[in-house]
Design a protein around this nucleic acid. Structure first.
Lengths: 216, 216
DNA sequence: ATCAACTTGTGAAGAAAATAACAAAGTTGA
DNA sequence: TCAACTTTGTTATTTTCTTCACAAGTTGAT
């Protein structure tokens, strides 16, 4: 344990951004120290799980004291590579896409939507904030030029696979897929699916079949 | 196994809506039978996992043949209570909220956004499709009158907890939270969090630290 | 100084989920 | 009718994740 080069469990890795954001909140509100119990209350993750998660990175806390917010924050900033800006492309500027364009990922995450694509002529050439909207035809060219490695896919599902193939061709390594389609990609490409209908449906299923809620 | 009243593993329950949708697709395209291997290819879930998932509901397939699409579909329709319409409230008609309003959940899921709420005067009284938009002030009254048990929360995060408290007061049992806030609710209420920034951030983390992708 | 109170980090146990592997049963085509 | 093939359902195994529980270190009040 505590070997920084070792791979962290996936479940832990998924919680890191969450921890990071709440530590930022604490920092902003002037808090100097925090215990795993307090953090647990805030992020709704068992305190033992939090301590275990942190322990993969070594001994970050102090017994009887807790964690120094600043130290932890600095540590995670480095670990999460928050200093290096990650450029993201948004594919499909519909309602969902627009929601992303207006979302300030930069603030906490140092992740920036650098370019967007659509097919609607009236959108092309315009910009949302400082994010220019290109025509889908220019996908490969722009993505390669801007050296973009991550894409958010918010297009109608019937186009999802075709566009995915083009993204893979343009050397994109990660896709956040909001389409109901399940994408086929080479194994070197990572896809995270967020399926809104499935999320809603499974919530409904849990409500009907698991009356006493155990928090997800 | 095969006892319909027993509780299904959570991981399985989360995949059911996905299976259901793909079975619908298969049905629409005229397919009569399907093997776990084929389904696996389509939904990107290991075929053994699919067979295991199905087996919680009994022996739905036939050796050497696979599964009858129609039979499976009918079975899941009943199991997932697809015949009973679930009414949902949407809280916050911004870009993200509007994306939901335009999403036809009814089609596959028999889940319907019945009402929406916002505070912007120009939106109140209007409707998106057949979904009326009410003022946030009328939240409790409308939700109780319409007997709504599920809410989708797409409001600015600073209002999330206050509105959640009101939803709980109006007898909502499940909340799909798109806000970065982690909500505090009584244990009888179920909350599913979908945190867009965390999703994006954790995808970026995986790309940087797990070069050879194991699909999530 | 002393000591009660606090809180971490982790070994051990437990729970949940995924995967492997294969007998049994059914299908298909000759 | 039979042999080759297919595919399930499930048992066993492995992997992953969570939680318990507590020794050991630290704090802070007196």
């Amino acid at each position: 344990m505590g070997n920084e080069t070792m791979k962290i469990p996936q479940a832990t890795a998924k919680r890191l951004p969450l921890y990071y954001r709440f530590l930022n909140n604490l920092h902003s509100s002037g808090k100097q120290r925090v215990s795993s119990a307090e953090l647990s209350e805030a992020v709704k993750v068992d305190s033992a799980t939090i301590r275990r998660d942190f322990s993969y990175f070594g001994a970050l806390g102090k017994k009887g004291y807790g964690y120094n917010v600043n130290y932890l924050l600095t540590f995670f900033r480095n670990t999460l590579d928050q200093d290096e800006l990650t450029k993201v492309a948004l594919i499909g500027v519909g309602n969902l896409g627009t929601a992303f364009l207006n979302y300030n990922f930069l603030k906490n995450n140092n992740t920036k939507i650098a370019v967007a694509f659509d097919v609607a002529e009236e959108k092309i050439g315009s910009a949302v904030g400082d994010i220019p909207i290109f025509h889908m035809n220019d996908l490969e060219e722009v993505i390669k030029r801007e050296k973009i490695g991550v894409a958010i896919l918010t297009v109608p599902s019937q186009f999802a696979q075709t566009i995915t193939d083009r993204l893979v061709g343009a050397d994109v390594k990660g896709i956040l897929n909001f389409t109901p389609a399940r994408l086929t990609v080479p194994s070197s490409i990572r896809v995270h699916h967020i399926d809104l209908a499935v999320e809603l449906q499974s919530l409904v299923y849990f409500l009907k079949h698991y009356s006493e809620s155990e928090q997800e």
